[in-house]
C-alpha cells in the first residue's frame, strides 16, 4: 500500500509573454510508508519541480498527488521540506527558527513543552550548543542541520529534502549524510530526497527513482537498493552489490541520459 502516490502528474510552467514550458510529462511514482526514496537526474530535469509538487508549493497542471489518502492541494507541515539553500530566517536564532515550525504544528502545547520539542530536535542534529546563535554565526553545514531540525520538529508524515547537502564540501557532506542515516533509522519516517550524487543516493535510499532529461521529463528507471542497514560508507565501498548499483546508475546517467 503506497503512502504517497504521484499519478500521471504533468507540470507546465507559463512562460512570460505566451506559451508554456512542459517540465514534467505524466510522472507516476509511489512511495511506501517509512520508505526512503531518492530522485536522481541531471540538473534541470525537474527534480525540484516534482518535490515542490509533492510539497504542494506548486499545483500540477494534470494528474494527482495523494498523501496518506488525501489529495495534496497546498503546502503543509505534514510534508515538511529541507531546502537546498537552508532557507533559515536570518533574523531568528536557530532556536527561534525551529520554534516557528513547532508553534504552528503543536499549537496546543504549553510554552515549556514547545521549548522541549525545539531542544529535542536540535539535540537530534547535535546543535543544542549553538541554539541561541544566529544563522550568520554558524557554518554552512550547521545551517543545513538546523534546516533538518526544523523539518523534523514538525513531525512530518513525509520528509522532503531538495539537494540538502549540495552546497557543502565533501567531508561536511559525508558527516551530514551519516547523521541523516542515523536520524532516519531512529524515527523511521517516509523520506523523498532529491540528489544528483550517486553515492549519496545509494547510501541513503531504499529505492532510487531516475528521471530522464527535460523538457517533458519522465521517470526513466527505478532501482531497488537492498543493502542491509545500518549502512556504513566504509564497509559499503567493498561491497560488490554496492559496486553493481553504482554502475547501473552511472550507466543510466551517463550513457542513456547524457547531460
Amino acid at each position: 500500500m503506497s503512502f504517497l502516490s504521484v499519478s500521471d502528474v504533468s507540470m507546465a510552467f507559463r512562460i512570460k509573454g505566451n506559451g508554456s514550458f512542459l517540465a514534467l510529462d505524466s510522472v507516476s511514482m509511489d512511495v511506501a510508508g517509512n520508505e526512503f526514496v531518492c530522485l536522481i537526474g541531471h540538473s534541470g530535469c525537474g527534480k525540484s519541480t516534482l518535490l515542490n509538487l509533492i510539497a504542494g508549493l506548486l499545483l500540477p497542471t494534470a494528474g494527482e498527488i495523494r498523501c496518506d489518502g488525501k489529495a495534496v492541494r497546498g503546502p503543509g507541515p505534514d510534508r515538511a521540506m529541507v531546502f537546498q539553500s537552508h532557507a533559515l530566517l536570518p533574523w531568528m536564532t536557530c532556536f527561534e527558527n525551529v520554534h516557528l515550525a513547532v508553534k504552528q504544528v503543536f499549537s496546543t502545547l504549553s510554552a515549556a513543552q514547545m521549548k522541549d520539542k525545539v531542544e529535542e530536535a536540535l539535540r537530534l542534529v547535535h546543535l543544542d550548543h549553538a541554539m541561541h546563535k544566529y544563522p550568520y554565526e554558524i557554518s554552512g553545514g550547521m545551517k543545513q542541520r538546523v534546516g533538518i531540525a526544523r523539518a523534523l520538529a514538525a513531525a512530518p508524515q513525509v520528509l522532503l529534502l531538495d539537494e540538502p547537502f549540495g552546497a557543502l564540501d565533501a567531508l561536511t557532506r559525508a558527516s551530514l549524510q551519516d547523521e541523516l542515516v542515523r536520524i532516519v533509522e531512529s524515527i523511521r519516517s517516509t523520506v523523498v530526497m532529491v540528489t544528483h550524487d550517486i553515492d549519496e543516493a545509494i547510501l541513503l535510499s531504499d529505492r532510487i527513482v531516475m528521471m530522464t532529461n527535460g523538457p517533458a521529463a519522465r521517470i526513466g528507471d527505478v532501482l531497488k537498493i537492498d543493502l542491509p542497514r545500518p549502512r556504513d560508507r566504509v564497509a559499503l565501498a567493498a561491497n560488490p552489490q554496492y559496486a553493481a548499483h553504482r554502475e547501473y546508475l552511472l550507466k543510466f546517467l551517463y550513457q542513456k541520459q547524457r547531460a
Binding site: 508549493l57 503543509g76 507541515p77 515538511a80 521540506m81 515550525a101 504552528q104
Partner: peptide, 15 residues
C-alpha cells in the same frame, strides 16, 4: 525561499 518556509510550515496571514 522565505515565502516557501512560511507556506510549508503553515503560517497564518498575521504571522
Amino acid at each position: 525561499e522565505w515565502v516557501n518556509v512560511s507556506r510549508v510550515f503553515g503560517l497564518d496571514a498575521f504571522q
